[in-house]
Write a protein that binds this DNA or RNA. Structure first.
Length: 111
DNA sequence: TCTATGACTCCGG
DNA sequence: CCCGGAGCCATAG
């Protein structure tokens, strides 16, 4: 069966996430909006959920609009997501990125 | 087919 | 910024 557009949507999500520079972060909504589906931010999250079993996607660089590590619970370790971000020089406090606006990477603006 | 759910976001208070 | 409520939309059962 030929894959539908929603599969391309997933592939595009992965591609955008891979383009996130080292030490930078973005939000689900920004990616969704970049892909032309600003209302499908949740689908981006779903894409991340199934992506961890595929190629190595830096999902830890994708957080919600508040810079909160909402997906940390989906990582193996309890604080693995935070550790990965801090390893890239991103400060994380109480499951939230410090100076989120400073590290924010907007695909619409940067690409 | 319908209902529930969620790694979201926006809006009003 | 915090809280509660509503909108959105693909997936699971």
């Amino acid at each position: 069966m030929l894959e539908l557009d929603n599969v391309n949507f997933f592939e595009r999500v992965y591609e955008v996430v891979r383009q996130i520079p080292y030490g930078r972060v973005t939000s689900y909504g920004a990616i969704a909006k970049y892909l032309g589906a600003p209302r499908s931010a949740r689908m981006v999250g779903w894409a991340m959920n199934v992506s961890h079993s595929m190629e190595e996607i830096p999902a830890h660089r994708v957080v919600n609009r508040k810079g909160l590590l909402t997906g940390k619970f989906h990582f193996d370790g309890t604080n693995l997501m935070q550790q990965l971000l801090e390893n890239e020089g991103v400060k994380v406090k109480d499951n939230q990125i410090v100076d989120f606006e400073k590290y924010f990477w907007d695909p619409m603006q940067e690409m």
